[in-house]
Design a binder for these strands. Structure first.
Lengths: 219, 219
DNA sequence: GTTGATATACGGCAGGTGCCGTATTTCGTC
DNA sequence: GACGAAATACGGCACCTGCCGTATATCAAC
């Protein structure tokens, strides 16, 4: 029998809070103990009720972006912070996680991810929405993140494979891709085959769907 | 016994859609028949399913502000439009109502207002959130503006073409599509070619991207 | 300095795609 | 009942794809 998880919902949009509460009410071992519509209220509540977890909208008044997360962590170091926001900027994602949040959900993402996020966070893992997961996987962003052993890269693609994935998703043929990158069409084709095998994709449509799902920029 | 009210929920934030659906599911005589995450999808759905009411977020992609409301009204003149937005500018409120919306809810407002809004709108009244009610002196004095000429042409696909679009986007070949639909592979191919010409698509990747963009059910 | 991952490159083969035709049937509308 | 839109069906052809090999150069890591 799992311990009851106490949650505070913080979002300035009442409709979002209501939706979250209803979503959470369908889950077991979870209880929404309070809600807040601004940063000051949230801080007060956290101080008073020491919840296990807060679901935090970064867009609300009195929440000066990422810095607020650090402040929250000084107030309640062991409390988990799940950020829920419309922002999908890789830089923001990295900053949020670096500041100490344990999860990052996008408002455009599948609500079913909420469940997965809570589960992962309870296992002391970091959870990212599908749509922003590439932000951490991207090799260019590899400032060794101070993550607590959170293995969140299901299938790593190489830089080249990422490029080919993006171009293929835009409908470029192997020949066109090769021209664009200045390599042989046969090589482009090989990269494409490799990434397809890695990701268990079987045709161009699935490539495009995958690329869009992980939020890759598509022309 | 009141007639069942069919509703389409349109918001690019999945979490908000989910919250709205859950809220609406607690009400009687109300059924959410579809949802949309962008304007184009919404237009297609409205055309296809003629809902009684749409709950519309003005901030979503493909919804060019107030003008989109006018366009929606040319598509479905008798459909009620309830705008749900974070915007509390009096000017916006007035513009939205002038464009033909029957209700204006703010996201920061009390979710209980949703019920009141639906009731009022079904009585052919205009409903405004408490927080923006000051913006308009006498909401009841509203006369819907005359419908202007069409000025809206998202390329219409036939029912069959829609089906083929969806299946092709999932990576099915012409043969597989044909098997699924019980028609000749050559016919499936022809439908696919026709829809591609209509939509100016040139390969499977673009088909998949398009289908996902308009929110067609994939996978 | 050997190992492993990455990137490069080539080729065969079956099957699928995209574009070009044409043609018949069905069905709702005027 | 005439008409147009939609759905059905067939075929050729160049090209591309997806899957199967193989092979070499580079470079970081151990």
């Amino acid at each position: 029998m799992r311990k009851l998880l106490t949650i505070v919902v913080a979002d300035d949009h009442a409709i979002v809070r209501e939706g979250l509460k209803l979503l959470l009410s369908t889950m077991d071992h979870v209880s929404v103990v309070a809600e807040a519509a601004d940063g000051e209220t949230l801080t007060t509540i956290v101080r008073a009720s020491s919840p296990d977890l807060v679901i935090l909208d970064l867009g609300m008044p009195g929440v000066a972006g990422v810095q607020f997360i650090s402040e929250l962590r000084t107030v309640a170091p062991r409390m988990k912070i799940l950020v829920l926001t419309a922002n999908i900027e890789p830089r923001t994602v990295r900053a949020v996680i670096a500041a100490g949040a344990s999860g990052y959900l996008t408002k455009t993402g599948d609500p079913a991810e909420l469940n997965a996020a809570l589960d992962a966070m309870l296992r002391n893992e970091i959870y990212l929405s599908q749509s922003v997961r590439f932000a951490i996987d991207d090799p260019r962003s590899h400032e060794p993140p101070p993550l607590t052993g959170a293995a969140l890269s299901p299938i790593p693609l190489t830089r080249r494979e990422m490029q080919i994935l993006s171009l293929a998703a835009q409908g470029l043929t192997a020949r066109e891709t090769a021209d664009r990158l200045g390599i042989s069409p046969l090589t482009a084709r090989k990269h494409r085959e490799n990434l397809m095998r890695k990701l268990s994709l079987h045709n161009t449509a699935e490539i495009a769907a995958y690329a869009l799902r992980i939020g890759l920029p598509i022309g």
